[in-house]
Each structure stands twice: as structure tokens, then as C-alpha cells.
Design a protein around this nucleic acid. Structure first.
Length: 329
DNA sequence: CAGGCGTGGGC
DNA sequence: TGCCCAAGCCT
């Protein structure tokens, strides 16, 4: 990964920049490396250190995070950066315990940053490590009940020397070889020590509690565009789904919402509804469009669909089918 | 403390 | 296609 410090520079005594390690680890929470790479590049180009990020306007950071998901991470990212500047002189704490006290840094991220950036032999346990350890010791207890046991076992493997490299090696092993389905045991460097492999149950571990079915929800979204191409946007409340992000006005999203246009107009329905799946429900949005102006519209020059969360970008895309073409300003 | 909280990719 | 999920945290 581009933000890593390679072995040559490591052996020269160079440590990774804690700011970059922290930023990458927060972005990687529940998110794949492929999805993170470009976001990491843009964030570090625009805000090269924690002081620069701390000084950034909220809306700029939320817009840059748009599309990456779990937007509470972006809100906590800013809170954390500002806390580091305000309470720690602009320097990240150099222990897992100190890091853990900051917003958006939980047990995993605190341990990962401490191990990678500070050489602290912290026990780093993410989903990959849980899987690798559960297989090595053939732990049959389902998650999340097995978590404390898996942390204990992971601690047995954690070395005093190069704990950061160890943590990343464990996670890379889980991401590339000891995968959730079809683990490639033939390529695994520790297959001879793996109890699950010996028992022929590697692919069945770790066991997990069954997940609840996602309910269907419905909603109405309204795209108003004025004669100059300006659009009506609103900022969503700080807490809850898509908190703090920009979006189009609309109804609540539940089983039988009432239409909720922001004002009376000749609303025309887009031919195709938007379908989108969130963590805990499926959503179908009917999209309505009107070519009208009004107060508070965002000028076309300030409107960037890429700064919208993905579900809202889908609404914008669906609206194009019934938008009267605008003359460019 | 179980559930809320996004998204894109892989199979 | 639809379902699985991925380097979790917060309340």
C-alpha cells in the first residue's frame, strides 16, 4: 500500500508518519484497500498534516469523504484532528491507551497505530486477525462471543520486535490467503500450524451469529433545478444516517411514507426509481423533478455530484432523464 | 450492549 | 442477480 514505509527505509530507522497511519486506518475501518486508495491520496494531497486537516471547514472534509461511507468516521476524523491540535500540541499520543481516548479511535485503530507508528507491541485484532486466529486454533465458538478468546490467542503471537510489521502481515494474510471463503491453504506460510486446516474445517471458521434480514423501505426525493442550473440541497442532521452530508430534500424513509415535496410545483416523476442498500435496510426512492427557481438554491458552479453520498448521487443520475436541458452559465 | 451506521466488489 | 461481506466505532 502506498502509505507504507518499505523495509529499506524502515531499517534506516524511519517510522511511518502517525498522521498518515491514523488516516489510513480510519479509512480502512470496514472498507477495502481498493476503495480507500484514491481517497487517501486526495486527503493527504489536500491536507498533508494533522494541523491542516484540523483547520479545514467541516463541509470540505465531508465533501471529500463523500462516497466512502460510514460518515460518522469523517465527523470523528475532524474531531480527532482538532483534539490532537488543541489538547496534544499537534502531536498524536504515542501509546495505544492515549490514542484510544480520541474520537473515532477504538481498540483496533489504537492498537494498529501504536504498533505501526510507535513500535508498541499492541495486540492488533481486526476481522482478518479474528479469522486467521480462529482457524489456527480451530476456535468453534461463534463471534462475537469468541472475541475475548481470539484477542487472547492473538496476543500469544504478538512479538516485541517489529509489532507493526507483524500486525500488517497478519492482516495481509487474512486479506489475501486466509480469506473468508475458499482460503488458499496451499499458499499459506503457516498451514502446518493450523488446527482448522488439519481438521478440514478452515473454510467453516470463524462461525458467526446469523444476521437479521434487511427490511424494505420506501421514500420520495425531490430534485429542483432553476434556470441557471442551480439545485436545491439540504444538509442532513449531524446524527443518524448520512449525518452531516448534503442531499436532496425528501420524505422520511420507511414502510409507507407520505410524499413530501419541499414546495408546490409541477413535479414530474423520473422513469426509474433509485434502489440502494444500506447496512440494515433496502431502500427504493421515487425521484421527482421540477424546473423551478427559489431562494437558497446552490449555484451550479458550487454543485458537485461527487460531493454527495452515493444514494444521493443515484438520485441526481435518475433525475437527468426528466430534466430540461440547461444552458451552461 | 445489540443495533445503527455505507459502499463497492466478489462470487 | 442477490447476497456475502471489509483493516470498527459509538451509544
Amino acid at each position: 500500500m502506498p502509505w507504507r514505509v518499505g523495509p529499506a527505509r524502515r531499517s534506516a530507522g524511519e517510522r511511518p508518519d502517525p498522521y498518515r497511519v491514523w488516516l489510513s486506518e480510519v479509512m480502512l475501518q470496514q472498507t477495502t484497500v481498493a476503495a480507500v486508495r484514491e481517497y487517501f491520496r486526495r486527503f493527504t494531497a489536500r491536507w498533508p498534516d494533522v494541523a491542516a486537516l484540523a483547520a479545514a471547514p467541516d463541509a470540505d472534509v465531508m465533501a471529500e469523504w463523500a462516497g466512502l461511507g460510514y460518515y460518522a468516521r469523517a465527523r470523528n476524523l475532524l474531531k480527532c484532528a482538532r483534539a490532537v491540535v488543541a489538547d496534544h500540541g499537534g502531536v498524536f499520543p504515542d501509546t495505544a491507551e492515549g490514542l484510544r481516548a480520541l474520537p473515532g479511535i477504538g481498540p483496533y485503530t489504537a492498537a494498529a497505530v501504536a504498533a505501526i507508528a510507535c513500535d508498541e507491541p499492541a495486540v492488533v485484532v481486526d476481522g482478518n486477525v479474528e479469522r486467521v486466529v480462529a482457524r489456527l486454533w480451530a476456535v468453534r465458538t461463534p463471534l462475537p462471543a469468541a472475541k475475548p478468546e481470539l484477542v487472547r490467542l492473538a496476543g500469544r503471537l504478538t512479538p516485541a520486535l517489529r509489532p507493526g510489521d507483524h500486525a500488517q502481515a497478519m492482516m495481509d494474510l487474512g486479506a489475501t490467503i486466509c480469506t473468508p471463503r475458499n482460503p488458499v491453504c496451499a499458499l499459506c506460510p503457516v498451514s502446518e500450524f493450523c488446527d482448522a486446516r488439519a481438521e478440514g474445517i478452515a473454510a467453516d471458521l470463524p462461525r458467526k451469529a446469523p444476521k437479521a434480514e434487511k427490511p424494505q423501505r420506501l421514500g420520495f426525493a425531490y430534485v429542483a433545478v432553476d434556470a441557471q442550473g442551480g439545485v436545491l440541497l439540504e444538509r442532513r442532521p449531524e446524527k443518524g444516517l448520512l449525518g452531516g452530508m448534503a442531499g436532496f430534500p425528501g420524505s422520511v424513509w420507511d414502510t409507507a411514507p407520505a410524499p413530501a415535496p419541499p414546495f408546490a410545483a409541477d413535479w414530474r416523476e423520473a422513469p426509474s426509481a433509485v434502489r440502494h442498500t444500506f447496512t440494515h435496510f433496502h431502500l427504493t426512492l421515487r425521484v421527482f423533478v421540477a424546473n423551478v427557481g427559489g431562494a437558497g438554491f446552490t449555484p451550479r458552479a458550487d454543485f458537485h455530484p461527487a460531493a454527495l453520498p452515493t444514494v444521493m448521487r443515484k438520485v441526481w443520475d435518475a433525475a437527468q432523464a426528466v430534466l430540461v436541458p440547461q444552458r451552461s452559465v
